[in-house]
Amino acid sequence: MSLHHVILGGSGVVGRETAAALRAADQNVTVVRRSPDPESGPGAPVVSADLRDLDDAIRAVRGAEVVYLVLGLPYRLAVWRRDWPRVVENVIAAAKVEGAHLVYFDNVYAYGKVDGPMTEDSPIRPSSRKGEIRAALLQQLEVGHERGLELTVARSADFYGPGASTSAFNSMALDPVARGKEPTWLIDATLPHSMTYTPDIGAALAILGTDDRARGKVWHIPTAPALTGEEYLTLATGGGLRHRTISLGTMRLGAPFVAVAREALELSYQNSRPYVFDSSRFESTFSMAATPYEVGIVRALEESRRVASATG
């Protein structure tokens, strides 16, 4: 049965992959972006809306049966503190007006420092300021759920994939390799570190929005067994390029001068201890296997090379 799906944050890679998966399943899709850019890919109409405005949020989800909140905000603490609570409050209100099922795409920041694999049952114990914000958003959503919001939560590990411009692995490893430069890993390349492939995120979110077994629960999106940073970089380079590691000390030295390093520093624990993400519950329930890294990295690298060739 075809439903009306509205994707909030359709200009990002997760929004694009979700729209593609839903269209492939013959679902009715509307993409919502802040900018009026009409280029959303074939078959999906575009709505321009600022989700920080309640009226815009209500207008954006009008007629929706399933709403996906996959929005990405600028990676700055001040922006997150200011905008995320308002966006989530407005989306909750808009979804309730329509009686729509909200599928919320989350990261793992709210788990904080976890000993052992992260699972859907891992406690919410943030150990960073961004993690505290994500935990507070979960509380907002839970209150909305208690007041009648139909809610499903999906989480992924750090992601990578074709055109994933906000992915650390894409920007630090795949894009440099595509230009013949050495790739980089953060802090400790000998530790296991899970990564989720973005087409798998889109496929999984489409399942969560269309399969009644998913509703009202938390799910970890299918993610292949973790490799080490060295193993990822070997796959990316074919063993033919040297790679380097940026130490924690170097990050600390650069933080006062480099905004990205400053914003990422509080989450450095994710690269200085094992970061292992368990998605077995989703995989066994919905019979979906994660894309192997040997396949996903090749496809993502092909796209990075295409972009590098096109841009000179």
Rank of each mutant, 00 (worst) to 15 (best):
K130Y: 06
G131H: 07
G131C: 04
G131K: 09
E132K: 10
E132R: 12
I133A: 09
I133R: 12
A136F: 01
L137R: 11
L141R: 14
L141P: 15
L141N: 14
L141I: 07
E142G: 09
E142T: 06
G144F: 00
E146G: 08
G148D: 07
L149S: 01
E150M: 11
E150W: 13
L151D: 14
V153Y: 06
A154P: 15
S156V: 02
A157K: 00
D158M: 06
D158H: 08
D158T: 04
D158F: 10
F159V: 03
G161C: 07
P162Q: 06
G163S: 08
A164P: 04
S165R: 02
S165E: 09
S165G: 00
S167K: 01
S167F: 09
S167Y: 06
F169Q: 10
F169R: 03
N170V: 10
S171C: 10
L174V: 05
L174I: 02
L174M: 02
V177E: 10
A178S: 06
R179S: 07
G180T: 03
P183M: 02
T184M: 09
T184L: 13
L186M: 15
I187W: 15
D188S: 03
A189G: 09
A189K: 10
H193R: 02
H193V: 00
H193P: 05
S194V: 05
M195F: 07
M195P: 02
T198M: 08
T198Y: 04
P199Q: 06
D200C: 01
D200W: 00
G202W: 00
A203H: 05
A203N: 07
A204I: 01
I207G: 12
L208T: 02
L208Q: 04
G209M: 07
T210S: 15
D211A: 14
R213W: 02
R215N: 07
R215H: 15
G216D: 13
H220N: 08
I221F: 03
I221H: 04
I221L: 13
P222A: 05
T223H: 00
A224I: 07
P225E: 12
T228H: 14
T228L: 14
T228E: 13
T228C: 15
E230F: 08
E230T: 12
Y232I: 00
T234W: 08
L235K: 11
L235R: 13
L235P: 15
G238F: 11
G238S: 06
G239P: 10
G240N: 13
G240Q: 12
R242T: 06
R242S: 09
R244Y: 11
I246C: 06
L248V: 02
L248N: 02
L248I: 07
M251I: 09
M251G: 07
L253V: 11
F257A: 03
F257K: 08
F257W: 11
V258C: 04
V260Q: 06
A261Q: 12
R262G: 09
R262L: 10
E263R: 14
L265R: 11
